[in-house]
Nucleic acid binder design. Structure first.
Lengths: 143, 143
DNA sequence: CTATCTCGTTATCAAATGACAACTAACGAG
DNA sequence: CTCGTTAGTTGTCATTTGATAACGAGATAG
């Protein structure tokens, strides 16, 4: 097993994944949302119900706490997300999508899902099951 | 086969891939290179010998031709890449890494490869072969 | 109680990025 | 040759993003 060759495949693969993600989401534009803000909304949308603190957001989105705070404030002003504080530790602020934000993201993701379904349209159920296994395998072992 | 469930797995998977890529490359800093410029260098490095025109770069990196031109000029001034024109169509400008740029990227990628190898260290050759198949399958069918 | 630490906010600044207009040069069709 | 098109450049501007300092309020250890 040539592990360096696998590395090259890995690099090419991540580039493909990135490209595909971009294709699927490039023209998803919510009002006056910047790319970074969209990233935050997507993160919140993906984490459905689990409460997320601002520090965690900051880590995951790879931005400083002050900048995260600023962008969240902007999103709050736009009515797309809301804060609520921990009942135990009052320093902690949790953040979630507002109903409005939830609705907007759900709408956006219907478009993305439609594109995804279109892309896999011609693939048989057996092959899809195989793809699902491949995704789980990779997700467990490498990513 | 629930295709919507596959969609959700797909979304989670792309997020994981993005995160992993970020982990592997976050502290790769070449001199005074901006993130966008790094993206260009990475693209050129990945495309080894195939000549790439500025318009193609512009498409793939999802930036306008004027901005691509500007960033390439900056990279040229830093001595990291170089242009040469098509002998047939003199409007076309091809772009490639300079020897210096090639060396810098090779060095950076040795670090990335080391991290990748570390991550797959405990995985047996049989499992790796399976992973390689999974990557090829996904790359062919979905991405 | 009082340091110290954590979580978050606010303000400010510089740099990076994106968008666009105006331009040159080369090609290609008629 | 002329006109329209393609490839790329230059310049300018507003916005976005990243970095950092200074601060406040709540937790926590000694």
């Amino acid at each position: 097993m040539d592990r360096s060759e696998l590395f090259r495949d890995f690099i090419a693969f991540t580039a493909s994944v990135l490209e595909t993600k971009h294709d699927f989401t490039k023209d998803i534009r919510i009002e006056g949302i910047t790319p970074v803000q969209y990233g935050i909304l997507e993160y919140l949308f993906a984490h459905r119900d689990e409460p997320v603190t601002i520090s965690e957001m900051s880590d995951c989105q790879h931005m400083s706490l002050p900048n995260t705070s600023r962008e969240l404030r902007k999103l709050g002003e736009k009515g797309l997300c809301e804060k609520f504080s921990d009942s135990e530790d009052k320093r902690k602020q949790y953040i979630r999508l507002s109903p409005e934000g939830q609705a907007r993201m759900a709408e956006a993701f219907r478009k993305v899902e439609a594109r995804f379904l279109e892309r896999i349209r011609g693939i048989s159920d057996e092959e899809l099951a195989e793809l699902a296994r491949a995704i789980r395998l990779l997700d467990g072992k490498v990513f």
